[in-house]
Amino acid sequence: MQVSLKKKETYGHYFATLRYAMYVITHPLDGFWDLTHENRGSLAAANTIIILTLLVRIMKLQFTSFLFLQVYWEGINIFLYIASILFPLVLFCVGNWGLTTLFDGKGKLSQIYMGTAYALTPYPLIQFFMILFSNVVTDEEGAFYYFAAALSVGWVAMLIICAMMEIHEYTLSKTILFIIATFFAMMVMVFLLMLFFSMTSQGIAYFISIVKEIMFRM
């Protein structure tokens, strides 16, 4: 009895936090404050939103009318495609966290992740209906489609700024400055990663060639 009750409570909390995303996207300043400070969000809900975003991105490839999105299927690798969304997300969270901890940002990594994920909510919401919509319009009515697509992205961008502002307790200008700085941090991380992998592969290649040489001499 107790176990099932607890289970029910957990689910209840999960759905409440997920439903809270709808409040967040319409009341960003208030919403993001409560999200982290009043514990009204959950990582589970954040993960759900990320997964929904990934799903919608993939569904978009398959189901959007070819009038608006021409997909060269031979060039699509689904894992790379998913990584191309997740990797920048992770880089953003880590980069932002790394920078803001140095400049008295109040957010923890998990909070930054949660805030970013909740900020993504409009994207799957709008894009899902845009997939359906794209199949009933012609080229000439495409302006609506492009407008809505731009709207979804613009809304997300606005929400991310609000989220960072509330989580780190920054002013607006400082937030924007640090988001720009985060992009540089992301680039630095990409550079370091590339350096790391290229060094590793060269190092390995070096030892392989030494072994080959020895085997050749013996």
Binding site: F66, L67, Q70, V136, T138, D139, E140
Partner: peptide, 18 residues
């Protein structure tokens, strides 16, 4: 039209079909 990615003509046909 869809097979050969002709968006312009597809749109025209689709408009009538719709």
């Amino acid at each position: 039209f869809k097979l050969k990615w002709d968006t312009h003509n597809y749109s025209k046909a689709f408009k009538q079909y719709r």
